[in-house]
């Protein structure tokens, strides 16, 4: 039975990480899930190394983390300004500290402190809530499910297994990606900053997954890239494009990258290429013209806006997002 006086409620401090990971594994990685335990290195990468920063509030009992509300920060360009969003992840309460008679619950208390600390800072929270998170988010976090994105999918027929000669495999992103991102972002109301810090953290330095970083250069300058890997999400054995950045006027670059994705997918035995675009983006239609079909997804997207100008309706129409902004792949 939980009582408020037993808990220390505070922001994360160095030294909490082992207890956070231990409770995370108890809550999310039990033997019934079949998932591997999260490691400390993985947690450090996800939160401490994130160039967008961490958002973590904790409930501790006898110096052990028993509740957490946490988020990943994202640097964003919003209406031409530099701002931040954050994505709620890993909300949890240790099973022995759930329920009880005391209201508000430990979960709500930690969530309230989290909001007090970070809502003034982040223009919006966002998330890709699953069924359980949708229920919790709706009840406690004022989540507004604002969009149901669809996949754009191409089942692969036999074909070339070699990359087009104009496409290079990047070892890591360098600072030349910034100019490409600035050029693309000029068309969007909101988007996560895609510079070498974000991209290398998200893909190159990922502790568990290896991604194909495919790029097209002209005179040394990057003029388009796609990041993908073989994954068992949203179905088994798919080749999933996690990030796509090509200027809208460069259909030629897009075609090269699509051919490169197909080649890599065939090489790795992926049965289909899966990607996802905001429906307002020209790429949503252009990929269909290139033979991709629109498939339903089980994804929902939620926001909790903190500035009335950028409400759910605005985000639906103006936010460029990719699978990169999720932890699905």
């Amino acid at each position: 039975m939980s009582e408020t006086r037993d808990y220390e409620l505070r922001e994360y401090r160095p030294g909490d990480e082992e207890s956070i990971v231990s409770t995370f594994n108890l809550v999310f990685r039990g033997p019934e899930t079949g998932l591997p335990l999260r490691t400390l290195a993985e947690w450090r990468w996800q939160f401490l190394d994130n160039p967008g920063g961490w958002r973590i509030w904790l409930g501790l009992h006898e110096k052990k983390v028993v509740a957490q509300q946490s988020g990943l920060g994202y640097r964003v360009r919003l209406d031409g300004r530099d701002e931040t969003f954050s994505q709620a992840v890993d909300s949890m309460v240790h099973p022995e500290h759930r329920g009880g008679l005391r209201k508000p619950s430990l979960f709500v208390q930690v969530g309230t402190l989290y909001n007090d600390a970070y809502a003034p800072r982040d223009i919006s929270y966002f998330g890709w809530p699953n069924a359980q998170a949708r229920r919790v988010g709706k009840a406690f976090l004022k989540y507004n499910i604002f969009h149901t994105p669809s996949f754009v999918v191409r089942e692969l027929a036999p074909g070339a297994g070699a990359l087009p000669r104009e496409v290079v495999v990047l070892d890591r992103f360098d600072e030349s990606v910034r100019a490409l991102w600035e050029r693309c972002a000029a068309h969007w109301g909101a988007c996560v900053v895609r510079d070498e810090r974000f991209l290398n953290w998200r893909f190159r330095d990922h502790p568990l997954c290896s991604y194909d970083l495919l790029g097209v250069r002209e005179g040394g300058a990057l003029v388009g890239y796609a990041v993908a890997r073989k994954a068992d999400w949203p179905g088994p054995g798919l080749y999933v494009v996690a990030d796509w950045l090509v200027p809208e006027e460069r259909n030629d670059v897009a075609e090269l990258l699509r051919r490169a994705l197909e080649a890599r997918a065939r090489e790795q035995g992926g049965g289909a290429i899966v990607t996802l675009f905001p429906e307002w983006s020209p790429w949503f239609d252009r990929f269909q013209r290139a033979g991709f079909l629109v498939w339903r997804s089980d994804c929902t997207m939620a926001v909790q806006p903190h500035d009335a100008r950028y409400d759910a309706a605005w985000m639906r129409e103006h936010w460029w997002y990719q699978i990169a902004e999720s932890d699905y792949v």
Binding site: N144, I145, F146, H147, P149, S150, D311
Partner: peptide, 16 residues
Amino acid sequence: EALSAGHAFELVRTQL
């Protein structure tokens, strides 16, 4: 906005 905020409606889908 009014249906979700004032009448507890949930989004089934962004209609395509």
